[in-house]
């Protein structure tokens, strides 16, 4: 298995039997929700889709995995989504086959997706790798594998020598800890399971990594072994264990 980190996504290419391009948390239609919160911006769906198409051109994958939260509005669809999503999905579909792992924001996605494209909400194994959005308990057969999840939008804050903080999207890679969280994982599979939390493709999403680790809010982040957590930047730069960042805080 080979991994490629695509910074201009952020996106991930996983190559074994075939080349899979994985992107997560696109949140098409977010502008309507922003407007409801007092932030009025023109839709950036076209730009976002173009960026995704460029990543597809760059990586030339066999299939595209949309790891959930393709759309944004819940609980109901907005006019913006009715208007934009058919075009978005058709552009992607006409380029390459799609697999959709619906997320918590994907209520109503069936309207825009083909039945054959939609995978179970609690995840599935594809070429020996487990995928799910990450908002609900994973199907039991996923354990023992590499589990790739979206949903968390990890963002890393780093400080340089003078003390200025900068933020970058990043991946968290971590193992499971037996007995932590509320998932019952077969003991034999705990050690073999690896979690990979993907950064969001949407340019506005981001959630501080230290809060994901220290204050977990999802079934998988709750049973993650935070001591084993490691950070990788969107371009693949290995930053190191999460614990070393914590030590840095005042050093």
């Amino acid at each position: 298995m080979k991994l490629e980190f695509i910074r201009s996504g952020p996106a991930l290419v996983i190559e074994n039997e075939e080349r899979l391009l994985v992107v997560s948390d696109l949140h098409f239609g977010i502008e309507a929700d922003l407007a409801a919160h007092g932030l009025h911006f023109a839709s950036r769906s076209t730009e976002r889709l173009e960026r995704l198409m460029r990543v597809i051109d760059l990586t030339d994958p066999d299939r595209l995995i949309l790891l959930g939260d393709i759309k944004h509005s819940i609980p109901s669809l907005t006019r913006q989504e009715y208007h934009e999503l058919p075009g978005v999905m058709e552009t992607l579909r006409s380029r390459l086959p799609l697999l959709i792992f619906p997320g918590n924001h994907d209520i109503g996605i069936e309207r825009f997706a083909k039945k054959t494209e939609i995978c179970p909400r609690d995840g599935a194994l594809i070429n020996g790798i487990a995928f799910l959005h990450g908002h609900m308990n994973p199907a039991p057969d996923l354990f023992g594998n590499l589990i790739v999840v979206g949903h968390h939008h990890p963002l890393l804050a780093l400080r340089d020598e003078v003390g200025c903080a900068l933020q970058e999207p990043a991946y968290i890679r971590a193992g499971l800890m037996a007995g932590k969280g509320d998932l019952s994982v077969p003991a034999a599979k705990v050690a073999q399971t690896r979690l990979l939390f993907m950064p969001a493709f949407n340019e506005l999403a981001g959630y501080d990594i230290s809060r994901i680790v220290n204050d977990p809010f999802s079934p998988l982040s709750r049973c993650m072994d935070s001591k084993s957590a490691e950070i990788i930047l969107a371009d693949g730069t290995y930053i190191g264990p999460f614990s070393s960042l914590v030590q840095d805080e005042d050093g």
């Binding site: 007092g38 932030l39 009025h40 933020q167 340019e203 506005l204």
Partner: peptide
């Protein structure tokens, strides 16, 4: 673009 009472906690406005 931004209402006086906008709820700016939802997203990263810096990127906006």
């Amino acid at each position: 673009a931004i209402d006086p009472d906008a709820d700016y906690e939802k997203i990263s406005i810096q990127r906006l």
